[in-house]
Design a protein around this nucleic acid. Structure first.
Lengths: 298, 298
DNA sequence: GACATCCTCTGACTAAGGTCAGAGGATGTC
DNA sequence: GACATCCTCTGACCTTAGTCAGAGGATGTC
């Protein structure tokens, strides 16, 4: 298995990686091209550039001076914090970036072109699969404070989505409570899934004295659905519930959340009588945890 | 479609390409590491290194001096031609290369590890598909002289394979002739398929006065079967036959060559009465060419 | 044996990538 | 208002990558 991955790595660094650099760096040094690209048409703070590209501050500064010298970029103090500076593309920079864009298209085409049409489709399909799975492997799951900005972001998005999808909208105040204190040890906990440090999903537990653990706030960003993030969050949450002595997990959900319901069913949840009076819920589920067994899967 | 390929390219250069270089070049500069790797445990001529890695002769020479200085490599005149020099790994070089090998394994594992087992299988499968198709896209088809060393190589391999597969072995002398003159314009022609300049398949035509064009010497190296090379060769040969005024292509084949027979059938060949007395043949096929239409597919 | 060709090596040079220390202005904190 | 901190920039410096011209020995050809 490892050998097969290596064969893939080898071919792909040769055919995609090396060529990619070559295509990009045809009239601009690679470093400059990468910076130009990353600035984007909307501009970008220097510090953001630095962290995204992983460059030394002195080096980046020099690259920006070179790009300024070539008339492709202008760097000005940022409005809010005048220590921070923001890079923007000039008209020439936009043009140059479009050229890089074009080259990137050329490279993509050059990979497809030699193939007969039927095989092109298969290639693109297989690439999509590889991309999905590699992306999925980059997702990390962290325990966070409910007040953590990433958790806040997820919950905000979660509520916004409920409001869009529920036929009568969603008002958090009308729903059963799960405030910060309830989702923080010792009364509960919260997990956030991140992709390249950006939050893309969350889930929480509310421990109950002498009652099943409640599962709350399960959400995955629409841009990353289908990568198995929901299942990973669920598995981790169940493991945490078991670790905290829980035997049974309870959750309620709305009929419009089809993907979630499918996930719960396929993960072994069974529909039960309503165990609370959550006004937005149509279905109530429960799962009996198998002691200790839930740790393995990731 | 191009956009999807670009997404793939982007992720893969980030996750595989960049990491790969990083893993390789952790205690040796990338250039040296690549040379060390390419020399391999059996040693390698300097000229071969140069062409495989695409390096300038001065640059390669310098890299070799550095590796010699580090005690990893020794370079000595080759036995046969004393202009050529051959690089070998020293004991230390072998060790260093094993380390690179190990790192490469680590990288492969690090891609798989975060995934649940079922998804690992899917990833490896999709990688295999991408690899196969990208490789297939790298195959080139050339018209060559029958005396071209690549053609000679293919025919030699072809005969050797026939000898292995036919129940009673294969003696070229006993078979119907197709010597150099017959496979060279104006009497015929020969195609060779190459992958990174290595021959991996061949096929030839023998034009006949007032009779169907004969297809001969269809062979694909076992290491590259399943990439559609056979089909491409066949399509090109048919196009050439049509271009030389052929209306019908004839071929005969042995019952043990199952893949070939399948290829012919799926390409529209039909089995006909024996049209010659080739002693090794069990099946005779013929295809009527559609004028002009056969150029498009690659 | 003369001559062209092949292969590798050396020297000289350029450009790009990358690191580090410290300067200097802007901001937040007490 | 003093002080620590943050952000970016400059200067000095080093390594790696890569190119080019030409030397010099080994081979093949006539």
């Amino acid at each position: 298995m490892v050998a097969k991955v290596r064969r893939f790595n080898r071919l792909v660094t040769e055919r995609v990686g090396a060529l990619n650099d070559h295509y990009l760096a045809r009239d601009l040094p690679l470093g400059q091209a990468r910076v130009l690209w990353e600035i984007g048409n909307d501009g970008c703070d220097v510090r953001t550039l630095r962290s995204r590209l992983g460059l030394d501050s002195g080096y980046l500064s020099r690259l920006l001076r070179e790009l300024e010298g070539a008339g492709l970029v202008s760097v000005e103090p940022s409005g809010r914090d005048r220590r921070v500076r923001t890079a923007h593309l000039t008209a020439g920079g936009v043009k140059e970036r479009a050229l890089l864009d074009h080259r990137s298209d050329d490279l993509a085409r050059s990979l497809l072109e030699p193939l007969p049409v039927a095989q092109r489709d298969r290639l693109v399909e297989a690439m999509r699969e590889v991309e999905r799975l590699l992306t999925s492997a980059m997702v990390e799951i962290h325990r966070v404070e409910p007040a953590d900005p990433r958790a806040r972001f997820c919950v905000r998005e979660y509520f916004a989505e409920l409001d869009r999808r529920f036929s009568k909208g969603f008002d958090p105040g009308a729903s059963i409570s799960a405030d910060d204190d309830e989702l923080r040890p010792p009364r509960g906990l919260m997990l956030v899934a991140t992709l390249r440090d950006e939050p893309v999903g969350c889930g929480a537990l509310k421990f109950q004295r002498d009652a099943p653990t409640e599962l709350k706030r399960m959400w995955v960003a629409s841009s990353t659905r289908g990568l198995g993030i929901g299942r990973r969050l669920l598995t981790e949450l169940e493991a945490e519930a078991a670790r905290h002595g829980g035997r049974v997990v309870h959750l309620e959900t709305n009929g419009s959340l089809k993907e979630a319901i499918e996930l719960y069913l396929s993960a072994g949840y069974e529909e039960v009588e309503a165990f609370n009076d959550e006004p937005y819920a149509h279905h109530w589920f429960e799962k009996r945890l198998r002691r200790g067994a839930s740790r393995v899967a990731r």
